[in-house]
Amino acid sequence: MRKLYSIGEVAKLNNVSIETLRYYDRIGLFTPASVDPTTHYRYYHEKQFFYLDIIKYLKYIDTPLYQIKEIMKKDVAEMLPFFEEQTEKIDKEIAQLRHAQKILDHRKNQIKEQNMLVKQPRGKVYSRFVEGEEQLHLFTDDLTPYGNPDVYMRDLALLLETKESVVDNFYGCVYELKNYQATEEIIYSSIYTSLLKDTPLPEQPTKKTSKKYMPEGQYICICFKWSEACYLAYYKKLYDYIKQHHISTEGMVFEFSLPNRYFSYEEDDFITELRIKMKEEN
């Protein structure tokens, strides 16, 4: 005669709670072998432990209980497509987690760079090494430092989000190195956001956008608290320094701004760095 186990014994032997076993019984997922008609105590036989292990396994891979109930009714051949589907699902989740980890590492590096910029003397020219990075550029022809690049960034955000990625909320602008006499003379040729390595985008995503690489190297820079009123003065200080010291550059200004705080209801507070790549000596 097959030995029967009480619900408490089954719970202890199989590392599940009594409440869980009662719930499984109520929904018809895992019912006892017999129930005492007088006491209503539930009893299970040892052969059922095998099926309880299957339920626990399916729960471990996040299978809903209603789906487990259907699976338990299938034969082995019918279960194969389910497990293949679960494998694909897990592979996708692993890929998403790896991508999320890349985003996190990228953001940590940006915060480190921001902390470095905070320590730089405000309004003084300096040179520093800048790591190279992939960038997604949106071409512009009417945007100035007086404009609002956030609206333009929506085009980049929509493009990245359709690729199951996310836009970097730190962005920059690019324009030519010239002897500007007024801030409104500065016209951004593009705005950009940094991309994670291997972001799945075509080389020319649209007519208005382009994937580019900002090369690593030594850059001549100046940083300051963002201000429309003082922007040109800081730019001219950098421009004059380059001319006075006969520094050869690659001719494009990268404006990069980072927020000092993240409260949307407070006044904007950004630290901005203007950086221009210096030509390498042969």
Rank of each mutant, 00 (worst) to 15 (best):
E185M: 07
S17C: 04
H99M: 14
A229F: 06
A229G: 00
K243V: 15
E250F: 07
K178S: 04
T39F: 02
E184C: 10
I61T: 14
L156A: 01
K59V: 03
Y57C: 09
T144R: 10
T140W: 01
Y180L: 02
Q101I: 12
S189V: 12
Y213K: 06
P32H: 04
S165I: 04
R154N: 08
L232H: 06
M278S: 01
N15W: 05
Y219I: 06
L29A: 08
M72I: 11
Q181W: 06
E273I: 14
K47T: 12
E19T: 12
P149M: 02
Y23I: 00
Y5H: 11
K236V: 15
D240L: 15
V151K: 05
Y171E: 01
K108A: 10
S34F: 01
K124S: 14
E203I: 15
L65A: 09
D53T: 11
Y175S: 03
E280W: 00
E113P: 00
P145C: 04
Y146F: 15
Q101S: 12
T249V: 14
I54F: 11
A233S: 12
Q101F: 07
Q86I: 12
E266T: 15
K178R: 15
F139P: 02
G132K: 04
R26K: 15
I54A: 09
D36W: 03
Q114A: 08
L21K: 02
I220M: 04
Q135F: 00
K69S: 10
R98Q: 14
I27Q: 06
N148C: 06
P205E: 06
C221N: 05
V167A: 09
L158G: 00
F256H: 08
Q135E: 11
T39W: 03
K163D: 07
Y44S: 06
I247F: 02
K56H: 09
Y41S: 06
R42A: 07
S264Y: 10
V174W: 00
Y192S: 05
G123V: 14
K12H: 09
G8T: 14
M116T: 10
I191F: 01
S210Q: 15
E85I: 05
V118F: 07
N148H: 05
E113G: 01
E19H: 13
M214Q: 12
T87N: 12
N260A: 03
A95P: 06
K56P: 04
L104Q: 08
Y265H: 13
I71L: 15
E255T: 13
P64I: 10
E161N: 12
Q135T: 10
K124L: 15
L80D: 08
D150I: 09
V35S: 02
Y51D: 10
F263P: 00
S194D: 10
Q110E: 15
L195A: 02
Q110P: 00
D268N: 12
M72C: 10
K279Q: 15
E280D: 11
K59M: 14
I68H: 07
Q244E: 15
Y146D: 14
E176Q: 14
Y265L: 14
V174S: 04
N169F: 02
G123W: 05
K207V: 13
M214A: 05
S190F: 04
P149W: 02
Q244C: 06
